[in-house]
Amino acid sequence: MVIRCEHLVKIYQTADAFRALDDVSLEVKKGEFVSIMGPSGCGKSTLLNILGLLDEPTNGEYFLNGAPTAHMKDSKRSQARWKNIGFIFQSFNLMPHLSVLENIALPMRYSNLPHKEILPRARELAIRIGLGDKLTNTPLQLSGGQCQRVACARALANRPNLILADEPTGNLDSKASTDILTLLQELNREGITIVMVTHDPQIAQGTHRTIYMKDGKIL
């Protein structure tokens, strides 16, 4: 089991104590491709942030690759992020002043990969996503689809076993969306577990399983 959540609760301490996640339990097996759907504000992104160790639940337990995450120190959580998890965001979140190559290399800078191996591996990944001829370009010189491809390559940099994608096709046209889905399916076939938040039912159809959420609960 890559992901196991037990009774996750996330409460934001606002004036009315907003309950973003309400007793969410979830299991995702190794090699699964799971999509999460639901209306805006239903808690999809909050769940994804907790699964990605970017946020902590108010209550409940989350096990990543069988290990409890509740009392992990910051350094361990950071290590778990670069070691086990690759992120793909809706707005790409690339560094605008860095080249394609440097953007892909960025997660490796925080890993224990030897310095001299970083750029060759980044180049390899760029070629794999079909951007081998744009290594020195910055994100501003790329299309949306190309940017998301770079983000995919960056997510693969440290060879994680889990990819968390937050509406990866949300900012793309249908052709680019299909390309990204195809790429994710390809990665999934290679054994990478993927959890993807999406609003697009057609994209969700391309995954193994779809989880529906509403008002912080899994339906």
Binding site: S75, S78, R81, W82, M95, L106, Y110
Partner: peptide, 16 residues
């Protein structure tokens, strides 16, 4: 700030 968030998501620790 956003960049700090991205770096943290990609594995940067507080020390980094």
């Amino acid at each position: 700030t956003k960049e700090i968030g991205i770096r943290r998501a990609l594995g940067a620790s507080r020390r980094d």
